[in-house]
């Protein structure tokens, strides 16, 4: 299963994902997809460093369904984290300030 790293940004708590260069991005569509466990764990160490550096809180790996050309989270919880409350799509705004 493909994976991605999710976390909360310390300063505002918004959901962020690790991008391809270890940077943090606000939208799941820009998150880096790790195809194997080795890569995923290696980048998780980088994420832990971001915790130490007080940039992010609570990073962890999530399963991603990358088929169909789009990175989509697996399961209700991560889908809701990625796209906002399923009952208030009118309020969707990601960490880049898009939407809303």
């Amino acid at each position: 299963m493909s994976q991605m790293i999710i976390a909360n940004r310390l300063i505002d708590g918004l959901v962020i994902y690790m991008g391809p260069k270890g940077e943090w991005v606000g939208s799941i569509s820009e998150g880096a997809v790790f195809e194997n466990e080795h890569d995923a764990q290696r980048w998780l160490v980088v994420a832990q460093q971001a915790v130490e550096d007080s940039v992010v809180v609570d990073p962890y790996l999530i399963d991603i369904d990358a088929g169909g050309g789009k990175s989509l989270p697996v399961g209700a919880r991560e889908t809701i984290r990625a796209f906002g409350p399923s009952v208030r799509t009118d309020l969707l705004e990601d960490a880049e300030g898009n939407g809303g």
Binding site: N8, D12, G13, L14, V15, V57, D58, R77, I80, R81, G84, P85
Partner: peptide, 12 residues
């Protein structure tokens, strides 16, 4: 937490 601030699914 003593001030009522949680970290939830989307934000604080």
């Amino acid at each position: 937490l003593m001030n009522g601030l949680y970290l939830q699914l989307h934000a604080y």
